[in-house]
């Protein structure tokens, strides 16, 4: 009798990971807060005029990299409806689109900041918080759970509590905080991830911005599936923000929303926020299957992506 090679698989025991359609670069053309809106459409036009040449440069440089100049570039715009609510989609979005068009910019996708916290019942922020793997200080050997300051995340060891008395009765002296990966001297960063008042959690701006970057990089999954997909726009924009999808596709011919790399063109006032974002993203463990998927896809196109996801994110501060 010959032997038979038999295999048995159980669907529930296997892990499936959906893949995201990916552009080469996702360019963030702007991020609108209430104060910008209150300053009127001229502020928006100024912003777009500053952004336009940088967006064009990045587009050209990717076209030069990709055979046949067929670079997939998508643009996006984020509106803050989380920290303050202002205006309505019906009033605001046409104004934004008009200001962009005046500067020869096309906004492919428009996203709501509150969607980075919760979108269609999916708590994206919680999803990312659960994937934080704390940067260990020297002599962290696993014997104790990581030391955490609830709601905060840092890149090193914090100063000991000044004035606290140790077991032997000697008051502890001040010692500086230390960055774990310091080169000579420390740049110690401690980021507030959220706070809570009356049982309600408010995620910090850097934390939501970190979620935003992960969405743009197509690296988030929920039970193996993509947690948010862009929805094509309706003819008219709604009168309230809740009725607007998390990510609206404004341009039907747009390249995919998520991309191998991201570029954000921002005012220098966002520099501290973006340092905080990078501190958070340096401690997010992205699903290994998703990382491999993206690496295989980009490799298949002859593009070598940076291993570290923070190196796939770039900025222009202008």
């Amino acid at each position: 009798m010959t032997s038979v090679d038999a295999t048995f698989g159980e669907v529930a025991a296997e892990r499936r990971t959906a893949s995201a359609p990916l552009s080469h670069v996702s360019i963030e053309l702007g991020h609108l807060y209430m104060e910008d809106f209150e300053a009127g459409p001229e502020r928006l036009r100024q912003q777009f005029r500053r952004v336009a040449p940088w967006a064009a440069t990045v587009r050209t440089s990717w076209q030069d990299r990709v055979p046949g100049r067929r670079a997939r570039v998508s643009t996006c715009f984020l509106i803050d409806d989380y920290f303050s609510r202002f205006s309505t989609p019906a009033e605001l979005i046409p104004m934004v689109l008009e200001a962009a068009a005046e500067c020869d910019l096309t906004i492919d996708y428009l996203a709501r900041e509150s969607a980075c916290a919760v979108s269609d019942g999916v708590e994206l922020a919680k999803l990312v918080e659960d994937r934080l793997v704390d940067d260990p200080s020297p002599d962290t050997n696993g014997s104790r759970p990581p030391v955490k300051e609830t709601g905060w995340l840092c890149n090193g060891s914090r100063s000991p509590q000044v004035g606290s008395v140790q077991a032997m009765g000697k008051a502890q002296r001040w010692a500086p905080p230390v960055q774990n990966a310091k080169r000579g001297h420390s740049v110690f960063v401690d980021v507030e991830l959220w706070d809570e008042h009356g049982g309600k959690r408010t995620w910090s701006c850097p934390f939501l911005a970190a979620v935003w970057q992960l969405l743009r990089l197509g690296l988030l999954r929920r039970e193996g599936r993509l947690p948010v997909r862009p929805v094509p726009r309706d003819d008219a924009f709604p009168e309230d923000w809740e009725s607007l999808p998390a990510i609206v596709q404004l341009n039907p011919a747009a390249a995919p929303f998520s991309a191998y790399t991201t570029l954000s063109v921002l005012s220098p006032r966002f520099l501290p926020v973006e340092l905080a974002v990078r501190t958070i993203l340096s401690q997010v463990a992205v699903d290994g299957d998703v990382l491999e998927q993206v690496a295989a896809r980009s490799g298949g196109e002859g593009i070598k992506l940076e291993d570290e996801l923070v190196d796939r994110i770039s900025y222009v501060f202008t």
Partner: peptide, 26 residues
């Protein structure tokens, strides 16, 4: 959150949590 518990029923029920990471420097 957002990660399924993998489970197989044959030849007996075996369920496993998602893989989690712990950072060390030691």
């Amino acid at each position: 959150s957002g990660e399924t518990v993998r489970l197989s029923r044959r030849p007996m029920i075996y369920a496993v949590s998602p893989d989690l990471l712990t950072g060390v420097d030691c």
